[in-house]
Design a protein around this nucleic acid. Structure first.
Lengths: 138, 138
DNA sequence: TTCAATGCAAAAGTTTTGCACCTCT
DNA sequence: AGAGGTGCAAAACTTTTGCATTGAA
């Protein structure tokens, strides 16, 4: 995996411990955390970091295409370091947000672009329901 | 078109002028308004209605399946009286949110549901990009 | 008459902003 | 050294809540 500092530098960002921490955390996380979750997760290792910095950092990253913002019907946005367009599932029982592998969507997306009178830049497909684990518990 | 009061009654809701106003407005609107937009639109005809009532009303409607909540990456939620699952486009230039007819997607999603280890209850597909009108202007 | 809905104001929660200080380059 | 980032506190927004009053059934 490419070094985080290197990636930030290539995007023309000044490299700071806070930015490295946020981006590294996001790249290693599967949970699609929101700002608060990122802040809490980094608190032990970066005790001086503020929540405002997390927000500002995420905003930079988003505009530079380093992260993707997800709106899954919660009051706060979640973030994903995988920026390639891919669908997500949201379990309404446990709240878990997961990535979904689906090449068919990418292909359809290409086709769509040609047929639609709308130039697609980004796409979000979110499936709400109950995940396998929660279904078994019930 | 079925009368609004009738629909509310069938859902077991007490029929009030505020509820009629909100639901009628949503059924006749194409703009997928948020709570504030609904409130402003109804202010002239319903000067005593409060924003809190709009929120409470939308919440009832959502749980009864009369409206669908949309998260299109804005700070506030938008609402759609068409509850059947259908994709939306969001123009990043003019901000307009529009319904999209796209049978191929619906079929693909059905297939997805069968293959996935996830029980889909609701789904949202949002395409971000530039609409025809804004593209012509540029 | 009764119970639920409304309207107001206050509270809660998320995100943004202003500004002094600090740090990367 | 200088431009830009950080941290703090306050502000701005959206949405929810509590409660007295009103209104639908």
């Amino acid at each position: 995996m490419k070094e985080t500092a290197q990636i930030l530098r290539e995007k023309g960002l000044k490299v700071t411990p806070q930015r490295i921490a946020v981006y590294t955390m996001l790249r290693n996380s599967m949970e699609h955390p929101n700002a608060e979750m990122i802040y809490k997760a980094l608190e032990p290792t970066n005790p001086t970091m503020s929540l405002a910095t997390v927000y500002k950092t995420l905003d930079y990253f988003k505009h530079l295409g380093l992260v993707q913002e997800l709106n899954v019907g919660e009051p706060s946005s979640r973030y994903d370091a995988i920026v390639a367009c891919h669908p997500h599932t949201v379990c309404s029982v446990c709240g878990k947000v997961q990535d979904l592998e689906m090449d068919e969507l990418t292909e359809l997306h290409k086709k769509l672009k040609q047929e639609l009178d709308f130039e697609v830049e980004q796409e979000q497909l979110i499936l709400y329901g109950t995940c396998a684990r929660c279904r078994k518990k019930a």
